[in-house]
Simulated assay, not measured.
Amino acid sequence: MKLLLSIVLPLLFICQATCQGNKLDYYYEIPTAPTEYTAGSVAARVVDGLGFRYYWGTEGLRQEDLGFKPSDEARTIEETMDHIVSLTQILVDAVNEKPFGGVDLEGKSYEDKRNMTLRNIREAGEKLKKSSSEDLERYDMIFSSSNEFPFWNLLNGPIADAINHVGQIISIRRTSGNPYNQNISVLRGKVKN
């Protein structure tokens, strides 16, 4: 009986951890599409697309990749990641109806920054999935009392900018000799078998 328990209990713990899924692996594949088109579900799908691309664009970066930049005028991959953290913080603050409070990246590792960004994207995506058109009207980007922008600007500003910068990371990592997983299908939002 003790032998059986010593085998079964660890397997149960492993299954529990695996079955629940790692919250940071949420964007390993793009979440299932909503069943209906609403303002919130469409916005959420764009954010989920960002999450999927970011997950794979930043997965497995090496230290030499983080410091690599293709020219003197360009940002390094890590500097680009820092910018994306800020963009996703603007997004999550807006959907939580809070002014942008900035981001403190002092002493944060690559993994910390990556996880922070993925959490921001997921939180915003989850909130948007439940949001109505009226909710979106309240999701303003607020930088100061005299510097506010409606949700429309969030779409063509920080969200589009973040997607663009993920593309830059993918391009730069190819140049540094560490291309991202070629089995990624951004169309399907899945890893090809």
Rank of each mutant, 00 (worst) to 15 (best):
A39K: 13
G40M: 12
S41R: 12
S41C: 08
S41G: 04
V42D: 01
V42E: 02
A44I: 05
A44N: 08
A44H: 03
R45C: 01
V46F: 00
V47Q: 04
V47T: 15
D48C: 09
D48A: 12
D48R: 11
L50C: 08
G51L: 03
G51H: 08
F52W: 11
F52D: 08
F52Y: 15
F52P: 08
Y54R: 01
Y54M: 12
Y54P: 09
Y55A: 07
Y55C: 10
W56E: 11
G57P: 08
T58R: 04
E59F: 14
G60L: 04
G60D: 08
L61C: 10
L61M: 11
L61N: 08
L61K: 01
L61V: 11
R62T: 14
E64P: 00
D65P: 01
L66I: 11
L66C: 12
L66W: 07
F68D: 02
K69W: 07
K69D: 09
P70Q: 08
P70G: 11
P70C: 06
S71I: 01
D72T: 09
D72K: 10
E73W: 02
A74N: 10
A74Y: 01
R75N: 06
R75C: 00
T76K: 01
I77G: 03
E78L: 12
E78M: 12
E78V: 04
E79Q: 15
T80S: 03
M81K: 06
M81Y: 03
D82F: 04
D82R: 00
D82V: 02
H83R: 00
I84N: 13
I84Y: 05
V85R: 01
V85H: 05
